[in-house]
């Protein structure tokens, strides 16, 4: 049980002495705490499920970036998908999501066999510490997902 939850329970217990309603107050506190992150993650999850037409397999997709972003406004990331990139076996598209952003869509890339490599290096905005996820759609209809957690800290001197 988290410290915060215990605090809330303690408060509600004190309130109980004057008004009978302990369970109500504690439950209300808890629902606020758990609902938010779950809702944000679900929307990226839904988008991924829609693109992939189900749950993509783990693997082949590598998401790279700093462990701790120096600033959330400009976070360098690299997406690379393992593929021979031949006419009958290539990566058709890669969709990048940041599930902790107000809007989880970041970018999407449509490749061709002539791309030679399913690779993109670019810079993104991250609102907070979160997973950057990339879903690759392969030419045979299969889908793969990879992710990396990138920490975004609140610095001491924004300036």
């Amino acid at each position: 049980m988290s410290v915060l939850k215990e605090t809330r329970l303690a408060l509600s217990r004190r309130q109980l002495l004057t008004a009978a309603g302990t369970g109500l107050v504690a439950a209300a506190g808890l629902s606020v705490m758990t609902a938010r992150p779950a809702a944000a993650a679900a929307s990226a999850e839904e988008m991924i499920a829609k693109i992939a037409g189900g749950t993509p397999k783990e693997g082949l997709v590598k998401v790279d970036g700093p462990e701790i972003a120096e600033n959330g406004n400009t976070v360098p990331v690299t997406i690379e998908v393992e593929s021979p990139m031949t006419a009958d076996n290539y990566v058709k598209s890669v969709h990048v999501f940041a599930d902790g952003n107000p809007s989880p869509e970041v970018a999407a890339f449509t490749f061709t066999p002539q791309s030679g490599k399913a690779f993109a290096k670019f810079r993104i905005r991250l609102a907070k510490t979160q997973n950057v996820r990339a879903v690759a759609m392969m030419s045979d209809g299969s889908s793969y997902v990879g992710s990396k957690e990138i920490k975004v800290t609140i610095g001491g001197c924004g300036g």
């Binding site: 002539q114 290096k121 810079r123 905005r125």
Partner: peptide, 26 residues
């Protein structure tokens, strides 16, 4: 590349200002 699409990309509000993009071509 000589009129043929090699790579296209869709960007959203989470792409940083002064966008940089590095990719490959055969």
């Amino acid at each position: 590349y000589n009129g043929k699409e090699v790579m296209t990309s869709q960007w959203y509000g989470a792409v940083s200002a002064n966008p940089y993009l590095e990719f490959f071509c055969t």
